[in-house]
Every structure is written in structure tokens, then in C-alpha cells.
Design a binder for these strands. Structure first.
Lengths: 218, 218
DNA sequence: CTGAATCCGTACTGGCTGGTCTACTTTGGT
DNA sequence: ACCAAAGTAGACCAGCCAGTACGGATTCAG
């Protein structure tokens, strides 16, 4: 992992070819998430994907190119899992629901493997500048979802307009990543629950007293 | 990294031997922090430490044993850097001073390499159970320092007695780790500053109104 | 139908990796 | 002074790794 050249210049891909390529990336993503990028060999990817060496090198120039594809897939996957909760986020209640879903997810697997993006970030950020840029973009994108949701809370008058959505969003994603890491080390979802809880409390602290009755307690 | 056997049964070590051993661990720690554990070869350690293959394998059974020694050294080193601030911690003011020192440290190197413990945690937690246990202990120890400080704030009547020091401590360490990871990806100390700021605000929120004049503003 | 591009399988290689072996030098206790 | 233990050196090896060579099978445009 030094230069990570751009991906193959998007040659013609038949439907069959696209499928094979996808199987490769999927297998690589799984292996790299479980064993790390350096801990995953091209031969393992070949076997896990049920393809062959020549196919692998047909679709990817080298390991760096494969890693790039894996980063893209993983960031997309993680966001896909969060999008349902964040897309329409516009209330503290929604933020808490997201937190609960996250905690449940982490708790179920006792923090195993950590966040797919987070572990890639930790391993690659200082090894490959292109990878770092991609991963940083993923984090920023993630934060932008949260920031947009927080902005909607302000628009709805639930939150103080002086709050800084972008800063709060960064704080929440940081809590998520740190909470995940501690949960991974402790094999317990508890640190994630605490970390996200504290992060969200910073948003709650900026809540405005609601004018009317409307939605109920807690 | 699968079994990580116990370290060599502490044979007799001459002063010269201990020095050599230390040089090896020091070099290994540096390399592994910069390039990852999997990305560091035994030959690199030999060269960087100015020793030889036989010395390496004289002092360590295998790479796992060396990694174990590196974990011990890194956790000790990191704690040494924080101890001056945390040892006597007994006020919000002190907590903020610690945060400032951390942010300065991260900012200076633009988050490069990340937290030594954090990156080891991310790479090893799911690869080696003994390593995971060691790293988890380091986190817990770190948290216990913060918790003790927070408890002292309660004893001094600066903080609400209903606050849970252990939970707050976990939240702060999580914010530190997550903040570091984002800072590493963004090459900026800003995420760390925000993350720690938000974490500490949870402590500040539990501050009690001080009875007398005594210490000044902010 | 045809031929060129895409797709695929497998054997192979040169270099690197963790780890071993044998032999030489230094140290420290008595 | 002696010698066993500790320390040191560097050659060596078997296996693994990323990447290549080359030949054959499918697919698709025209």
C-alpha cells in the first residue's frame, strides 16, 4: 500500500464480468474486515470468491486497486445501514432511535471486528494517501448526514439555532468510532452505549422548551 | 498473531542484555506504530535496533512475544505521558488542562499515526486474545485514572455526587480514541478538540455551584 | 458466422518472511 | 585464571506472497 493507482479505466464490463468483479470485492471486503488488509492474501480472496488468480488480476491492477474497491464498498455498505435512520432524521427522538439501533447492533456481536470504516481508517490512513482521502470523505459524508438532521431540528424549533450542527456531528461520529473501539476491546456494547449517550447529551443540552403539548415524555 | 505465548520465563539478564532487549522493543514499537504490526518484519526490527537475528530470537520466542512486549511498552509510554496530568486530577480546570495538552499534542503532528494504543487495539483485538486482554486492561487502567480524578472532584464538592465517575471516564476515553481516529483521517487536530470538548461538557454539566469565591472564573 | 474482446484456469517465479542452526565472543561468579 | 552462561553474528531454509505467463473458453458486435 503505497501509491494505490486509479482503478482500471472502466473498460467494457459484461453482466457476467460485473458479477464476478462484485464477488471478488465482496469476498475481499469480508476477509479484510476480519483479518485486516495486510492480513489478507490475494490467494485467500481467490479462494473465498470462488474465482481464479487471473480473474482477480483481470479486474484489478494490483492489491492497492482491490483495496480501493473494498473501501468504496465498505463505506457504501455502512452508510446504507445508517441511512434509513439518518436520512429523515429531524428530532432528538430520531437521534435516540439511531443510537439504540447502533448499540443493539454492536451489542449483538460484542463489538467484534469493529466498525468496517474505522478499522480501515486505522490501518490505512498513514499508509496510503489515496486511501486516507477516500476514508476521510466517508467520515465527512457521514457527518454531513448527522449535521443535516441536526439542522432540521433547528428548523423545527426543537434546537437552539446557535448550535453548530457540523461540530456536533463530528463529535457524534468520534464518539461512535471511539465507542466501537472500546467495545471491541472489551467485547461489550456498553462503551458504545455510553459514548453515544454522552455525545447525544450535548445535542439534548441545546434543546429548546417545546411550546405545545404534542409528543409525549422522555 | 494467534496464541501469543507467555514471555520467556524471565531468565537471568545482565545489564548489557537488558539494554539490548530494550533497544529491540523500542525499535519494534516505533516500526509497528508507524507501519502496523503486520507491516513490520523481524528483519526491519533487526536493522532498526542495530542488533541481529539471533539476538532478537534470543530475547523473544517469536513475533507474538515481541508484540506482547511492544504492547506493554506502548501502554506504559502513553500512560507516562498522561500521568502528570491525571495523577493529581481533582478539578474541572485540571481536566481542561489535560484536554488542551492532548489537543496540542495531536495538532502538532496532524494526528499522524494515531494513538499508539488505539492502533494496536484496532489491529490486534480480534486477532489475538492475549493481546486484546492486555489492551483492554490498558484502557481500563486509563479510565480508572480519569474516574479517580472525577471522584476527587465529587469529594471536593465541585461535582454532583450522583455522577458516575466510571461511566464518564469511559465516555472520555472513547471520545479520545474516536477523536484521534478522525484527526488521523482528516490530518487535523480539530476532531480531537471537538470530541474531548463534548465529552468533558458532560462532566461540566454535573458541576455544582461553588459556595465561596476562592478560585476565579471560566 | 466469425473474429476480436472479454473472461477464465493453472502453473509458475522471484523475492520476502518468520524462524533455525552453528559457531564465535564477552561476561561474571568463584 | 577458569569456565559456564549469556550475548552476538550471519548464513541458511522452507513456506508464503504478490504478481506473471500462457493457453483455452465464452460472449458479443456486425
Amino acid at each position: 500500500m503505497t501509491s494505490a493507482g486509479a482503478e482500471s479505466p472502466a473498460r467494457r464490463l459484461t453482466a457476467r464480468g460485473a458479477l464476478t468483479r462484485d464477488r471478488i470485492v465482496r469476498a475481499a471486503a469480508e476477509l479484510m474486515h476480519a483479518n485486516g488488509v495486510a492480513g489478507t492474501t490475494m490467494d485467500q480472496v481467490v479462494e473465498a470468491s470462488g474465482t481464479s488468480k487471473s480473474q482477480l488480476y483481470h479486474y484489478f491492477d494490483d492489491k492497492d486497486a482491490l483495496v480501493t474497491a473494498v473501501i468504496r464498498m465498505q463505506t457504501a455498505r455502512v452508510m446504507e445501514r445508517h441511512e434509513p435512520h439518518l436520512e429523515q432524521l429531524s428530532s432528538l427522538q430520531g437521534l435516540r432511535r439511531w443510537r439504540d439501533a447502533v448499540v443493539r447492533f454492536v451489542d449483538e456481536r460484542h463489538g467484534a471486528h469493529g466498525c468496517a470504516i474505522g478499522s480501515l481508517a486505522s490501518e490505512l490512513a498513514d499508509q496510503s494517501e489515496p486511501a486516507r482521502i477516500l476514508i476521510n470523505a466517508a467520515f465527512q459524508n457521514w457527518e454531513s448526514y448527522l449535521a443535516a438532521g441536526i439542522r432540521r431540528m433547528q428548523d423545527r424549533g426543537e434546537l437552539d439555532a446557535r448550535a453548530d450542527p457540523a461540530e456536533l456531528a463530528t463529535g457524534i461520529v468520534a464518539a461512535y468510532q471511539g465507542g466501537y473501539l472500546l467495545s471491541q476491546a472489551r467485547r461489550s456494547g456498553r462503551p458504545m452505549a455510553l459514548a453515544l449517550g454522552f455525545a447525544i447529551r450535548n445535542v439534548e443540552a441545546l434543546a429548546l422548551p417545546q411550546k405545545r403539548a404534542s409528543d409525549a415524555a422522555s
